[in-house]
């Protein structure tokens, strides 16, 4: 199945909802064309989510792995460090470009056409006459800061710390550009923003930590069998403790987010495109959890008990981590669709 087929199915799901009475109104119809506003919104959001997850999660990885991982001595992961640095240097401009494309998609959707993007007055209104304008300005500033930081020659904890904090602010500020911003001022609105922020940060830590984890599993190939076994177990143990906390937060905040969207219309969830997309997301996350549980509770104990066949166990773990990463990228696509699909009314 190609990406365009996936997008076509997603568009059908999004347009199939909601089913309010005709007088209530509907989402604007998408103009015909190979690339619609919906395509731009989904693709830009998907790429942006992935890039910001890398900025946050791949930087965070180096803080729960311990200081020795940044060094060249025993337990160090110099090749993983180089690969992560390169990934972050790619992720920052990709996040910036996709972030601008996302804002352009939002404005095109608000004004019913790409041609309206050429009118500076629309941009002025967007940035200075809307509730989400100041947040958008902040996000553009953060994205520019991320690009500048990745251009710096350092590769130390301060460098990772800067990207970690920028990534965290980008994830949190996404809340004001979507469904989480519908609660208004007051405690209820704040609870929606907090639930979204926890969900995004925890998911960013989990999925964004997978690329450096995969790099580390690959780097272990160059160690002797016993060293590879010991250091792989250590790296995986540290990652899995972080992931256990992250998954608990993801599930709790995910339940909260779903409750905020469908609390008054749960019975309609099964007949709407929003329900289809939500259940798809839950299904893919369940697959990720199954893989993560396999790694944590079956593969790791086997590796601990392994002797000479330890390298074979590490290879299996590497494949499993890669599969988890691919599923994580797929979840982000589903999340990109879910955020612009109207919940049941």
């Amino acid at each position: 199945m190609t990406i365009f087929q996936i997008l076509a199915l997603a568009a059908q799901a999004a347009e199939a909802t909601p089913t309010p009475p005709a007088d209530m109104g509907s989402m604007p119809s998408q103009p015909d064309g190979i690339i619609t506003i919906f395509h731009v919104l989904v693709l830009s959001r998907w790429i942006h989510f992935a890039a910001v997850f890398v900025l946050f999660g791949s930087s965070f990885f180096w803080f729960y792995m311990g200081r020795e991982r940044l060094l060249a001595g025993p337990g160090g992961l110099p090749k993983t460090l180089r690969a992560t640095t390169l990934l972050l240097r790619v992720a920052a401009p990709v996040a910036a470009i996709s972030g601008v494309a996302w804002l352009a998609g939002i404005l095109a959707n608000m004004t019913s056409g790409f041609s309206n993007l050429a009118d500076p007055e629309n941009w002025r209104l967007f940035f200075f006459e809307t509730q989400f304008g100041p947040v958008s300005v902040l996000r553009l500033t953060l994205l520019a800061a991320a690009v500048v930081v990745t251009l710096l020659p350092w590769r130390n904890r301060a460098w990772f710390s800067a990207l970690l904090h920028i990534g965290a602010l980008l994830l949190i500020s996404q809340a004001w550009l979507g469904h989480a911003n519908e609660g208004g001022e007051g405690l209820y609105g704040a609870a929606m923003i907090i639930a979204y922020a926890i969900h995004a940060l925890a998911a960013g830590a989990w999925v964004g930590g997978l690329p450096p984890l995969l790099f580390a599993c690959v780097e272990q190939r160059h160690f002797g069998p016993e060293d590879a076994r010991i250091w792989t177990i250590d790296v995986l143990t540290r990652y899995s403790w972080m992931a256990i906390v992250a998954v608990a937060l993801i599930v709790a905040s995910g339940i909260a987010n779903a409750g905020f969207r469908v609390a008054g219309s749960f019975d309609k969830l099964f007949d709407t495109g929003y329900g289809d997309v939500l259940f798809t997301k839950i299904g893919v996350v369940a697959l990720m959890l199954a893989l993560a549980s396999f790694n944590r509770f079956i593969a790791m104990p086997r590796l601990r008990a392994a002797t000479l066949c330890g390298m074979k166990q590490i290879n299996k773990l590497r494949i499993s981590v890669a599969a988890e990463l691919l599923l994580g990228i797929l979840v982000l696509l589903v999340a990109a669709v879910l955020g612009i699909t109207p919940p049941p009314q």
């Binding site: 909601p18 309010p20 007088d23 209530m24 109104g25 989402m27 469904h179 519908e182 609660g183 208004g184 209820y188 609870a191 929606m192 639930a195 608990a248 599930v251 709790a252 905040s253 339940i255 909260a256 779903a258 409750g259 905020f260 969207r261 469908v262 609390a263 008054g264 219309s265 109207p342 919940p343 009314q345």
Partner: peptide
């Protein structure tokens, strides 16, 4: 974890649904 998840679900069940997208 189950306590946290059930707590979150309880809070959401109490909450009034907010409608994403503005309809008349």
């Amino acid at each position: 974890f189950l306590k946290i998840a059930s707590g979150a679900a309880f809070v959401c069940a109490l909450a009034t649904a907010a409608y994403a997208h503005a309809f008349l």
